[in-house]
Amino acid sequence: MRIKSLRKIRFLLPLLGLCSCGPTQLDRPLVVASFYPVWFLADAIGGDAIDVENLTPAGTEPHDFELVPSAVRKIADASLCFVNGLGMEAWTDSLLPSYQKKTIILSEGLPTQSVDGAVDPHIWLDTALYRQMGEKVLSSMVQALPSYAGEFRANFASFCADLTEMEASAKEIAASIAGKPIAVSHAAYGYLCNEFHLKQIYINGLSPDQEPTQQTMTQVLDAIASYGIDTVFFEELASPAVAQAIAKASGAKAESLNPLEGLEEDEIAEGATYFSVYLENLHKIQEAKP
């Protein structure tokens, strides 16, 4: 009787095989980053020495991102997990203690701004703060993977050179756009506005996909009319519907502006980087009226 019932579950035996395979053996150390600007930093500093993977797939809005099994597996396998913090990655809090130990929150200790009383997480749009985030990436990578320290430091130096070069180009544009009001679909540009003395008129607050109330719609339309704004900026990764509706109602044109939360796959393939998109944003703001 007992043997018979054992036979019945014989077909389950191959399942035991699933338990026996050991952890994924990696030849190169793996570091993961929560979304594009964080990944860009880690990848620039890690360079060819290590593997750096972006947990948020290209073309996905980080706010909408939900961890799939492969993403959690990557966190488990990685030596370090870099996140921006400030509520961009709601899942950080629910990670197991052993995974939280290797999670580095880059915004920690940095000065932040707020929008409507909530902390603005789009801290990577401030180039000075972005450099500081880079320093934090460098120091944690050096600590976790000391054998690659030399390469990391060299990579960081060249990253800083590129960033400084970009800042120089940005400065040339700065004078022409100072004081300009811009209409945007979501209040992602607080840090950019602070750096270039812009004024953002936003339809949505910090969350890109919220539905605006009728009150905000009227306020935004009034502001657009009174400043004589001719361009409403939307972001490619979120739904452009609201910005398009506002543009239509006010007679302005809708144009994309990338808060660098993520890039599309083809943009990356065409060689777009944090630097190129940042400058492109400024050019678009320069072209917009008033």
Partner: peptide
């Protein structure tokens, strides 16, 4: 609309991969 959206979403979908 009054709660932090990201927080709310995490409850909406919940994830069995992220349990304490």
């Amino acid at each position: 609309g009054y709660a932090k959206a990201a927080n709310f979403d995490s409850y909406l979908f919940g994830s069995i991969l992220l349990l304490s």
